[in-house]
Design a protein around this nucleic acid. Structure first.
Lengths: 138, 138
DNA sequence: AGTAACGTTAACGTTAACGTAAGGTCTTCC
DNA sequence: GGAAGACCTTACGTTAACGTTAACGTTACT
């Protein structure tokens, strides 16, 4: 171990994290601008990300993959309106999160429907393909 | 039945459909520009939507809710590159659709993870809230 | 201590997915 | 048949989520 290497307190630079999560450093900085993460800094002002920060980023990306906007995600994880008092803010986030959980359950069902839709489309395409092939060489 | 009312061949105007699906007529026209739907027209050039068109729109909206872009959706349902020959196009769409189906299965798992993440966030928030309340009135 | 590789902010550019406004056409209903 | 209301196209505006320079500071290595 060179110096600052302590298996539990693994930290990353912005580009390391970006590579791991397959996004750009710019994207990560952008999420910070939006108030979704706030990593600590080195004395030289460079960002340092902990495993927790990484987990949060993964959550953000997951949310994104389901079409949630960054603003929505910000509310879900309770980092919005940091100017109001904390109790009110936390209660707001809790309520928001509960709504989003319901939404997620809806989406589960919806996802199944999407799957069925796509399966139906596939069947039709396969059928049409067979017809065309029969036409081609009868 | 007044005249053109044939329970199976229900048709809709653009604004009727928009209201049903809770989107704007402009959005529907936009999807058409993108090649996602192609409703028939009246002699006077107005769009008429069938139940099939409606189902397709629902599919589009479902796809959107999961973060698929309109271009991706276009490929999934087999309406892209209408200039190449049909067999090739259909095969392309089939392959694309299969990939997307896999993606959907991944997302199922992912959605469960997102749910767990959010539940974890909720627990933390609740805990923090209790702390704050204990502080407030000890 | 020099320098390559990486990091920082600031500011402008880009793209997808519509919104909106203008000006004209259809349909419907009296 | 004429006015209201819905529909049409065209075209420019808007917003979210980054991408892309530019101009400069920091870290790591030799």
């Amino acid at each position: 171990m060179t110096s600052q290497e302590n298996r539990t307190k693994q930290t990353f630079t912005i580009s390391q994290l970006a590579a791991q999560l397959d996004i750009s450093p710019r994207a990560i900085r952008f999420y910070e601008e939006k108030g979704l993460i706030s990593p600590r800094r080195t004395p030289g002002n460079q960002r340092i990300y902990t495993a927790k920060d990484r987990a949060r980023l993964k959550l953000i990306l997951r949310g994104k993959r389901f079409g949630f906007s960054l603003d929505e995600i910000a509310e879900m994880i309770g980092m919005a309106d940091t100017d109001v008092d904390e109790v009110a803010q936390i209660e707001k986030s809790l309520a928001y999160g509960r709504r989003k959980l319901e939404e997620i359950r809806d989406r589960m069902r919806d996802l199944i429907l999407l799957e069925q839709d796509l399966l139906a489309v596939q069947k039709k395409l396969e059928k049409r393909l067979e017809e065309l092939k029969r036409e081609g060489k009868p």
